[in-house]
Design a protein around this nucleic acid. Structure first.
Lengths: 101, 101
DNA sequence: AGTGTTTACGGCGACCGTAAATATG
DNA sequence: CATATTTACGGTCGCCGTAAACACT
């Protein structure tokens, strides 16, 4: 399981579409689409109900959403804690994309 | 950031050595070693003090350890929730290694 | 010497981006 | 017909395992 996939998933939910999320995350639309597919395959459950081009979260999707937010929050704490230490050592470009915040 | 790396890291701490952890996780010793190195590089902080062949957690290592446990616990919840559903949909090889528990 | 960690190297699989096909409003 | 998602395809990068080097007790 890749944290990036979860990030993409959350971005899709937040933005409402794969296209919008892919733009925010600066990846191609197919890449974002594939990541969702991969998650669904890996978990064995549908994350979205595809009604035409409309995406609506399934109950499992909502489940994953909550969990993903927690995971990403924790991961963020990790990065935030690592970042400052890194600065003391050498100044490296901070890997931060403008998704939600 | 890959969850597997964190899993390896926690295993190393729990088992006390890279060799033991790699055996548990059924990966090669170099692979486990490289994963730790990758984490240290990515975070920009040393996770262990290498005193000879003795590994002792740094304070940042202890930090990461706590966070990692939480992350992996959440990820586990995810898998546990997905597992049962997965069987109903399609049977995919279950990626589960016998670490500690 | 023997055990444990790291480096070198070759190979396989994962993932991405472009382009095309498909479907919807 | 324009927009959004998915599939096909080729190429690249990451990661692993074996083997060898290195370090410590």
């Amino acid at each position: 399981m890749n944290l990036r996939y979860l990030h993409t998933f959350v971005s899709i939910v937040d933005s409402g579409s794969i296209a919008r999320a892919s733009a925010r995350l600066k990846v191609s639309q197919p890449a974002a689409s594939r990541q969702v597919l991969a998650l669904e395959t890996e978990l064995g459950v549908p994350l979205f109900d595809r009604i035409g081009r409309r995406l609506r979260l399934t109950s499992q999707g909502e489940d994953l959403l909550q969990l993903s937010r927690r995971l990403l929050m924790d991961a963020d704490v990790l990065s935030a804690r690592a970042g400052p230490q890194r600065r003391a050592h050498r100044n490296i470009a901070c890997r931060r994309d403008a998704d939600g915040h």
